[in-house]
């Protein structure tokens, strides 16, 4: 069966820039200060990544990110602790290579498995695809205003638990205020900017808000709306996005949140998209 996508093909390459940046950093450091400095640069870069991913873990409690933290810590340790001796004759080069190769192999396989099983995938694109699925009417009507989509019965504990579940599974990033819990779905490649606060106010992003009285409202950012191939009827799209989260919450309440994740997996959206 062929899946009919409502979203355009993802051509955002911002997500790979932080990873690829190590190559020019390593190259430039090696060129100007020698190969040792290049390795030290990799070590520092790894420790910076460790901090970033530690923050992602603290914010989401997604354990797959701890593996990246461990990998970054390993690389940092290898290159910063051992590299001063590396190539200088005082440290046996073969041992360094063995540690390095074993570590790279171990973490490489582990991270590959996590990527393949989508445990490191931010699900913003799946959410937008699910929201667009039932909307067939074309009509635009975009507005930057939020749309109230209904009232639900939940306790604050339930909605907090739901927000934690959504964050742990990288479905949406929660922002909690005294009266609201706002869930912001994040697409792959946007996570660094959003988490590090470089994407501006989260109220300008796409979000679903649950307030203390049970009111659910939705906002779709224009940037995300333009991701759809066709100008879908905006009002219906907002309602549909609200319904996606309401349905997701109902499943979570029954202890079947994993089914929602299955639904997203069934969309077969590319891993880095």
């Amino acid at each position: 069966m062929t899946l009919v996508r409502k979203l355009r093909r993802d051509q955002d390459i911002r997500g790979i820039i932080p990873f690829l940046s190590i190559l020019p950093i390593f190259g430039l450091a090696s060129l100007f200060y020698g190969i040792r400095a290049g390795f030290i640069a990799i070590g520092i870069w790894s420790l910076l990544f460790l901090l970033v991913y530690l923050y992602v873990f603290v914010r989401t409690r997604n354990f797959a990110h701890l593996v990246i933290c461990a990998d970054a810590a390993f690389l940092g340790a290898v290159f910063l602790v051992f590299s001063p001796q590396f190539g200088a004759g005082s440290f046996p080069e073969i041992e360094f290579k063995a540690v390095y190769a074993a570590g790279i192999l171990f973490f490489g396989i582990l991270i590959f498995a996590l990527v393949i099983t989508r445990r490191l995938k931010w699900r913003g694109r799946e959410i937008l695809e699910l929201a667009g699925e039932p909307v067939d009417e074309i009509g635009n009507g975009y507005t930057s205003r939020p749309r109230p989509v209904g009232k639900m019965d939940y306790t604050l504990e339930q909605i907090h638990g739901f927000a934690r579940f959504a964050a742990r599974n990288l479905i949406a990033l929660p922002y909690i205020t005294s009266k609201n819990i706002t869930l912001v779905p994040i697409k792959m490649g946007e996570e660094y900017f959003r988490l590090l606060g470089l994407s501006g106010d989260y109220r300008d992003a796409t979000w679903v808000n649950f307030d203390e009285d049970g009111e659910v409202s939705v906002h779709i950012a224009q940037k995300d709306y333009l991701e759809y191939r066709e100008p879908l009827a905006f009002d219906q799209l907002c309602v549909s996005l609200g319904q996606v989260f309401i349905g997701f919450f109902e499943l979570y309440k029954k202890g079947e949140g994993a089914r929602f994740i299955d639904r997203m997996d069934d969309l077969r959206i590319p891993i880095f998209s």
């Binding site: 635009n140 009507g141 507005t143 930057s144 205003r145 939020p146 109230p148 205020t177 005294s178 009266k179 609201n180 109220r203 808000n209 307030d211 009111e215 409202s217 906002h219």
Partner: peptide
């Protein structure tokens, strides 16, 4: 109803369902 392409920007309150 709201007019299409009205060139208006709405600021939403952080703590309440209001603009």
């Amino acid at each position: 109803r709201e007019k299409q392409n009205n060139e208006a920007r709405f600021a939403v309150a952080r703590n309440d369902d209001t603009i």
